Simulated scan of single mutants.
Amino acid sequence: MIHQEIANYRLASQKLLKQNQNTPQEIVQHLGAIQAQDYAMAKWAIGSRCNATEKEIEEAINSGKIIRTHILRPTWHFVSADDIYWMLDLSRAQVKRLFTSSARQHGYDEKKLDQVNSSIEKLLSGNNHLTRDEIMQELNIKKASGDLSPVIIMMNAELEGLVCNGKMKGKQISYALLEERVSKPKTTLTKEEALAKLAKRYFESHGPATLLDFSWWSGFPPTAARLAINTIESELYSIEIDNQKYWFGTNFTEVDNFCESVHFLPAFDEILISYKTREASILLEHQSKAFTNNGIFKPIILENGKVIGTWKRTIKKDHAKIETQFFSDLDENKKSTLFKAIKPFENYLETKISIK
C-alpha cells in the first residue's frame, strides 16, 4: 500500500466500494457512529452504503433500531441501538465538559438540570413523543433571541441517557425516553474496555487511519487514543507510510488499486469528516471548496476515492434537481459518464432526478 492508495482502501472499509446486503442498522453499527446534524443528508450517508430507500431508513430510525443523539463530540450522531448505552457512558463526560460553561452562563447548574430532567421524564413517560418546541412550551421556557436554554436542556438530557430521538412528527424531529425505545443492557463495560472497543470499531470501518484521526473522530485526546490502540494492537494491522503509522482491521480485503468508482456523497460524510487530515481524498487546493474552517461540509462527488466536485439537491414536487460544480472543466462525455452514478440516489429517493 502506498499513500495514493489510502483513499481507495477507505472506500472499501466504509462499505462504499462494492454493493452489499447490509441493513441500515448494520451500516450504522459497522461505522460506529455517523455524524447526523444534517438529518436529511445523514440518512443518505446510510443509504449510499446499502440498498435501502429513504423510507426504509426512516422506518429504522422511527422504530428505534437507529438512534439519533448527541454523542462522541458535541453534535448529533446516528448510532445503533445495540451501541447506544456503552457509547454514551464512554463519551458523556467529555462532551458535557464542552458545554458546562455555557450552561452555567444561562443559569443551569447540575442541580437545576437534574430538576429539568425530572420534568422532561414526566412529560415523555408512556411513549409520549414531543418536539423540542413542545417540550419547551410545557416547561414554560419561552423563545428568546440568543438564548441557548433549549439546546442546553435537550443536549444534557441526551447525554444523561434520558432522551433520544422519537418518531418523526411530519418533518419535525421529536424526543422520546431512551429507556422506552431501547432496553438497558444487563452488563456494562469499563471505560478502558469501551474505548478499546470504540477504537477497534473505528479502525475496522475507517482504516487505514492514524492515531490522530481516531482522536479527532472519537473526541478523546491522543494520550487516551494511544492507550486504546495499545490495548488492541494485536487485533489490527498497521503500515508505515512517510513515517506515519496507519491502522486497519485484520479482516481487511485487498482491493483493486484501479477500481473505477464514482459516488455522490452527502454533506458531512464519514469519508471526509472522520479524519483529522484529508489530503488522501482531496487536494489541499480544493479543500476550501468542499468544507469551511468552521466545520461546514458540502455534499461531494468522488471519483476513484478522490473529491472532484460538489453537488446540491433541491426536492421538487415530482422530482429532485441536482446541480453540480466540478473543480476542473469537464467535457460533456465525461460529465455524462459521471452522472450515471446518481442512479443510487434516485433509487433511494424513489423519484426522478434531473441533473446538470
Rank of each mutant, 00 (worst) to 15 (best):
P222Q: 03
I241Y: 07
I229K: 00
L236Y: 08
G249V: 04
S274R: 03
T277H: 09
E240R: 13
P266I: 00
S218D: 04
E240S: 05
N230R: 09
S281C: 13
S274E: 07
Q244E: 11
N230M: 02
F264N: 15
E235T: 11
I271A: 12
D242R: 12
E235N: 04
I273M: 07
F248E: 00
N257P: 12
T250R: 10
K245P: 02
S238R: 05
E235V: 14
S261P: 03
D269Q: 00
T231S: 06
F264L: 04
Q244T: 13
I271H: 07
V262F: 01
G219Y: 07
L272A: 03
N243F: 10
L284T: 05
P222V: 02
A224K: 14
I273K: 06
D256S: 08
D242L: 01
L284E: 11
F264I: 15
P222I: 00
I232P: 07
K276P: 01
E240N: 08
K276Y: 06
G249C: 03
A225T: 12
I241G: 07
H263A: 00
I241C: 10
G219T: 10
Y275K: 03
E254I: 01
L227A: 10
I282G: 08
E240Y: 01
S238M: 06
S238L: 10
Y237L: 15
F258P: 00
P221I: 00
E235Q: 08
G219W: 03
Y275D: 11
I282P: 03
S281N: 05
F268Q: 12
H263D: 09
R278S: 00
P221Q: 11
E240T: 13
R278Y: 03
P266K: 12
T223I: 02
E260H: 14
N230V: 12
F268K: 03
L265Q: 00
E240M: 12
S261Q: 06
I239N: 13
N243E: 02
P221R: 09
F268T: 05
H263K: 04
F220N: 01
E235G: 02
W247H: 04
T250F: 04
P222W: 00
K276Q: 09
